[in-house]
Amino acid sequence: MTTLTPLLLLLVLFAFFALVLKWAFGNDKRAVPDYTGDDFGLLTEVTVVSSPAAAEVLAKRLRAARIKVTVVRRDGLHRLMVFPADASDAKLLLRE
């Protein structure tokens, strides 16, 4: 009976810690991640071009204006993505 007491105490402690962890981390209300590749988080698309050379020229123009830009290559197209705060300035700059 004395060898059963530490084992029982250990099982009770594990159950207690499992309940505490479930309580602390079990209420995850975050959105399900998008595995399709269409969700770019905080970035907003400002233009789409078909050639990598054109994408690089436009990206250099935006970087020269101190706008952070990311070029995303998908399905043969090159998307220029910026933060939403820079989207209107980037679109205006790319029209010129």
Rank of each mutant, 00 (worst) to 15 (best):
S50D: 10
G37M: 12
R74P: 07
P33R: 09
A15E: 10
V49G: 04
L13Y: 06
L9P: 03
A53L: 02
V69Y: 00
P6N: 10
G76C: 07
L94Q: 06
E56R: 11
D39S: 12
D34I: 05
V69R: 00
R74D: 12
T47K: 05
L8M: 15
A59I: 04
L43A: 01
W23A: 15
W23C: 14
V32A: 10
L19S: 14
K29E: 15
G76Y: 03
G26V: 06
F16S: 15
G76M: 06
L94V: 05
L10F: 10
L21Q: 15
D28W: 02
D75K: 05
L4W: 05
A64D: 13
F14D: 13
P6T: 05
V71W: 00
V82H: 01
F17W: 09
I67G: 02
V69H: 01
T3C: 09
V49W: 02
L10P: 06
A65N: 06
M81Q: 09
A53E: 14
F14N: 10
R73Y: 12
L7N: 10
F83V: 07
A31W: 07
L4Y: 03
T3N: 14
R30T: 15
A87H: 03
L58G: 03
T44Y: 00
A31L: 14
K60M: 05
D38A: 09
D75H: 10
F40Q: 13
R63W: 00
F40I: 11
V57H: 06
K60P: 03
V82S: 00
D39T: 02
L7R: 12
A85D: 10
E96W: 00
S50R: 07
L93M: 04
L94N: 04
A53F: 00
L21F: 12
I67P: 01
R73M: 09
A65P: 04
L77K: 13
V48Q: 07
A18K: 11
A24K: 13
P52T: 09
V48F: 00
V57D: 15
R79T: 11
V49Y: 02
D39L: 05
L4F: 07
F25E: 08
A59S: 12
A90C: 03
A24M: 11
P33V: 14
M81W: 01
V69G: 03
L7H: 09
A64K: 11
T47R: 03
L43K: 01
F25Y: 15
T44V: 12
D75W: 01
R63V: 03
M1D: 15
D34F: 01
D28T: 08
R95Q: 14
L9Y: 01
T36H: 08
T2F: 07
D75N: 08
G37W: 10
P52A: 13
T47Y: 01
T47P: 02
D89S: 03
R30N: 15
S51W: 00
